[in-house]
Amino acid sequence: MDQDLKTELSKHGIFATTFEELYNWGRKNSVWPLTFGLACCAIEMIATTMARYDLARFGAEVFRASPRQADLMIVSGTVTKKMAPQVVRLYNQMPEPKYVISMGACAISGGPFRDGYNVLKGIDRYIPVDVHIPGCPPRPEALIHAFMALQDKISAQHLTGESRPRHLKRDLPSEFQVPELGEHGLEPQQNDEVFRNPLKVLQG
């Protein structure tokens, strides 16, 4: 619908919308995160849900204890190599459409433990991440900002056409490869369908 026509109509007290906008408005205001914390960032995540920061204002206070009922996975903290298969499996068990916020330096890249033998260098090696939040740990305001960025992303999605989100493309698989912890770390080291190596991206 034409944006100018919409503003013109709203001046006359007529609210016009599309099915897509209404649908996305409902979706973005009812994102239920998974009850799932990995390290110290989880404490900030918990603080975000409490009365002082009050994530409930965004319709996301219902942390679900089962991946079957959750829309959003907040990877809050260091992902160890032992934990990574479980994280990917939980992501696979969430119903579509699903989103991932990678919270804090560890979840993005391994953070201060990047050189450790047992730390995964970023969860985006295995699952598609929608929003990254830098920080160690990020403050609750940062998580709220990430959440609002996710809401913007959801409301900008088109339900039809080639640019429609992944969950509406029927031929795409629903599950991502779960790595296995072998003798020399995780096997494979990254899922090439998901991971965009920053070095390769820089080189073009």
Partner: peptide, 19 residues
């Protein structure tokens, strides 16, 4: 309206991330 994307892991009995 719901986008059906079933899978082996999604339909698994246990839902704690472990097999």
């Amino acid at each position: 309206f719901s986008p059906p994307k079933p899978g082996i892991q999604k339909n698994a009995t246990y839902e704690c991330g472990l097999e």
